[in-house]
Write a protein that binds this DNA or RNA. Sequence first.
DNA 1: GTATGTACCTGCGGGC
DNA 2: TGCCCGCAGGTACATA
Length: 272
Amino acid sequence: MPELPEVETVRRGLQEHVAGRRMVDVRVTGRRTVRRLDQTDFEIRLTGRRVESFERIGKFLIARLDDGSAWMTHLRMSGQLLLRPPTAELAKHTHARVQFEDSDVELRFVDPRTFGEMWITSSELPELSHLGPDAYDELTLEELSERLSRRKSGLKTLLLDQSVTAGLGNIYTDEVLWQARLRFDRQPAQLRDEDLLALFDSIRVVLRRAVEARGSTLVDAQYVDLFGKAGEAQLYHQVYDRRGKPCSRCGALIARTKVSGRSTYFCENCQI
DNA sequence: GTATGTACCTGCGGGC
DNA sequence: TGCCCGCAGGTACATA
């Protein structure tokens, strides 16, 4: 599932291979891919525009265009962005194609579960105003402390809340909490200063390692990079999808439960 | 303001 | 072998 490290990997690839180019043909075929505005309007507004840069806030991918607008993409559960030669066979569930000037590859949006979406918005990105600081490059210890204070939910629920910090999803939340030795149901009011510092440090460590490893590709292989290559961050996973396997830190077996409807993996012994 | 539950959707795996 | 059902999960929205 694309979370911050996966989206950042895609962003870096787009910035390297596509930024600076003009879009000469935009075609959307997915019924649900563009749902915040008219599909034809979306195609017309993108065609002829030059992408100045690719940015990312949380799990949102932002293409800054030369007319001041922004082309937004969220991959949600199963969305993929792929660069392929225009003549290459279309993968099943290909919902959009974008051809660029002077490029031998086109960008394709593939999304089996169709939760992913694209839209166009103003440069101020009003749809993202509710997001907390980006977990990779904006979050500070003071801001994390402030945004957790007065909240009474468990840490997992709060870390999944994009208004606390943007970018963490189900996989990396579990990994962060394991790294910090904190249980999913600990409440902010119970945290000592050193616990909060451990949590903050763990967010940085886990996300940086995952970005360096170019994201996580799990068994279902929902995520691959722009050229279809798998990431390697799953090699560093300590708890996610490891139910019944020994904790690498203490040897106890990794347990699984449900939190906010999400599968949650943790060590019952060394996460307190 | 905060917390919780649900809908959206398709592919896959387990059970029969 | 084939069918059916439940599960997986990010976000927006409704409800408490």
